[in-house]
Amino acid sequence: MTVATVPDMNPPRRKSFYKRNEIALTPWLFLTPGILFFAVYVIIPIFQSFNLSLYAWDGLGEARYVGMANYQELMTDRAFEVSLWNNVKWLAFYLLAIPAGLFIALFLNQTVVGIRLYKSLFFFPFVISQVVVGLVFAWFYNPSFGLLNTALGWIGLGPINVLGDPTMVTYGIIAAGLWPQTAYCMILYLTGLNAVDPEQIEAGRLDGAKGFRMLWHIILPQLKPATFICFVVTIIGALRSFDLISIMTNGGPFGSSRVLSFYMFEKALSEYGFRMGYGAAIAVVLFLIMLVFIAYFLWSMFREERGH
């Protein structure tokens, strides 16, 4: 027979479940509110939009399932084509902010009196809201009194109506967008330049590298992290462009300055009728374009994480 074990009359007080699993549970307790918020407002809506793009819905009544009909309509929609094409222009030309930012950063990377103030003032346009940038540039382009045409007048040119001309309007708006974006890239590069290894520069100088060759072979490789961030924020900015278009032209003239983000908004919410399903389909296309870049960014970050 086994001897019944006499229970210890004074057991060590058992730790609570939480105490025993503290290290495993704590991160989840800390994550819960953040994940909850993020799921409700960001993650779930993405899937809802995907789903909605298969319906015809005016935002009030009953949604009607239409399958791929919204996407089929997109294929023949001229306005969609124009918007998509304009997005390509935005992506291509917005990237000019990177070399322009680098150029200004190189120009300002000196230690003369007052340079700190200069740097801040050059950065200034980034801090201002895009709404105000849009207003300011709309006046700048104004054909009757704008500064651009006044200046063109001095050299005997113009007047040109940048925002009224379907062939020029998108470039005009991109130029306005480049202003704050260049400032952003500039500040990233200024910080990067600060951290460039002076010994490598000296070594390069001894080897006779100067000017552009020095920049290309010695400086730029060290600025790679800055360039990567410039690239990320500029791509995102290009695909998010909405404020400037809305303020400066409201998509016009004749819808020629629309981009996908703006066209989606117009279809879903503005006077062109509440076509939520169709709007969602446009948003899905925009999302898929962005996804290519997001995947690339995440992949780069992942390699970085592994490297540590």
Binding site: Y41, V42, S261, L286, M301
Partner: peptide, 27 residues
């Protein structure tokens, strides 16, 4: 799932606003 959750936050931060617009407005 640490890195997975982290990347979820990062990726969500990059999405175009329009994909969220209608559901968020409804909510």
């Amino acid at each position: 799932s640490n890195l997975l959750i982290f990347f979820m936050f990062v990726a969500g931060n990059f999405v175009p606003f329009q994909i969220l617009m209608i559901p968020v407005r409804d909510l």
